[in-house]
Write a protein that binds this DNA or RNA. Sequence first.
DNA 1: GTTATTGCAAAGGCTTTGCACACTT
DNA 2: AAGTGTGCAAAGCCTTTGCAATAAC
Lengths: 157, 157
Amino acid sequence: MSANHPTDTTTTLSQAELAALRARGHRLTPQRILILETLKAGGGHMTADQIHAQVAPRLPALNAATIYRTLQWLNGAGLVSVTDVGEGSLVYEYFGHTPHHHLICQRCHRVLEIDHALLTPLTHDLADRYGFSARFDHMAIFGECRECRQSNGGEEA
Amino acid sequence: MSANHPTDTTTTLSQAELAALRARGHRLTPQRILILETLKAGGGHMTADQIHAQVAPRLPALNAATIYRTLQWLNGAGLVSVTDVGEGSLVYEYFGHTPHHHLICQRCHRVLEIDHALLTPLTHDLADRYGFSARFDHMAIFGECRECRQSNGGEEA
DNA sequence: GTTATTGCAAAGGCTTTGCACACTT
DNA sequence: AAGTGTGCAAAGCCTTTGCAATAAC
């Protein structure tokens, strides 16, 4: 879906990223590289299963267990976020661009991205008043989107 | 654990509440009443399993499936909220007091309650800028609590 | 008497885990 | 060579579902 390098299927990652991963003392395997690339190329939310499907053509043997293990590892390394959008599976997302969050419409299941800046005041309030350091990279806000509010009828959910 | 009525084990609910439930055209069973009472008495987050355990002495036959079904029904009736606090099971909470939300420490798993007012500005922003109507009754904010930040050492999670 | 609700048991979906083999370092 | 990571398969957990019997209306 986005192979700019016909001759090389596994080099979308920067040297810096590869180094960062290796730096943790862990090993760089084709599976891990491919999973991270896929997540990066996906450009948004992906479930473990979607990653599996996406990766299958290139590495059919790649096991689901490996995907989960790799995802945890990438999350620990700070390269990937994990969010529960309330649809059964967790969704993973490559990190590394502008931080942003998600508005999830519980009626149509659409996902809107919002800027991190909107949460800044809240972040400060929580820190000031409760001493709590919020990790909003983890966050999803549920509700109803404009379209569904306007066509306020059908209860799909 | 909180039986003020030695002669009657099933009457902590107000007439208004009972009426509200019946009003939906559904039936009032001892199971449902007990589950709602338990949730109310719990005064906070409870998982389906905790409810099950709590209810067992009074109604040992009460099945887990019934609990889940009842919980969904109560949620639909607006009496109970459902939140995913990221610990595997959903948590349910009796609604009916001041709306509030939860800060969840990912290190020590402590849960702090915060006032709804803190989210008001955000709610408005989302409505104004995105036309999104947020349902914050559903919300949990992850991060690290004051205590864990201060004793910044141990990586428990 | 009707019809919703329960209990039981089984299935379901997602994720994790144990183990031997393979591969990275 | 040493030790982490992989694949496979199985288990795990939480939750949902089908069905006949039961209880509420």
